[in-house]
């Protein structure tokens, strides 16, 4: 069970709504499966040039290239690397642990896409060397605008398994 306090839960939904139709992204940290800290991270996808988009898988890449740069964040996200490290540093200094990455899906359900899984696995291959705990991947779906849905997943061996999440 992964526990997200109500104020952070609400703020994640506000974050997602505030960026819709763009995807938002961020990080969650805490201890013992309970989140105590949330970090909003900038989705810099629109700032990536065509060569930099090459990190996305082929189907996603061709979709991205068909869109104007400012529209690309509607269907994907890329965290700002500096902000991510800044958050990691803050997490270390507070003596808490990185627990999850989160992002929004503004027009699709709260489950990881093929691209989400591929790119999470890339991180998974780097993570152990950095002594980071395995993060969950939380998705906030605004598919039904009036009823946002939040779900958490563990992604390993290219498979996503849902982890129950509770608002408390």
């Amino acid at each position: 069970m992964f526990i997200i306090p109500s104020d952070i839960w609400e703020d994640m939904i506000d974050h997602a709504r505030g960026h819709a139709p763009r995807e938002c992204c961020g990080m969650l940290a805490g201890t013992d499966n309970r989140v105590t800290r949330q970090y909003r991270i900038t989705n810099i996808l629109a700032k990536l040039n065509e060569a930099e988009l090459a990190r996305f898988d082929q189907p996603k890449l061709s979709d991205l290239k068909q869109l104007a740069p400012e529209e690309r964040a509607d269907i994907a996200f890329q965290m700002d690397a500096r902000e991510l490290s800044q958050a990691q540093k803050d997490i270390r200094q507070r003596g808490i642990e990185l627990q999850a990455f989160y992002h929004s899906h503004t027009m699709s359900p709260a489950r990881p896409s093929a691209t989400d899984i591929t790119l999470a696995m890339e991180f998974e291959h780097c993570r152990a060397a950095l002594n980071l705990p395995q993060p969950l991947h939380v998705i906030v779906s605004l598919e039904d605008r009036d009823h946002p849905v939040m779900r958490a997943y563990r992604i390993e061996a290219s498979r996503a398994t849902e982890v129950p999440v509770r608002r408390q």
Binding site: C25, F56, P59, A76, M79, D80, T115, L119, C126, A129
Partner: peptide, 15 residues
């Protein structure tokens, strides 16, 4: 020393 190159997490919605 050990240097690690790590692309920051990214993802994409369903088609």
């Amino acid at each position: 020393d050990e240097v690690s190159i790590v692309p920051a997490i990214a993802g994409g919605a369903h088609d």
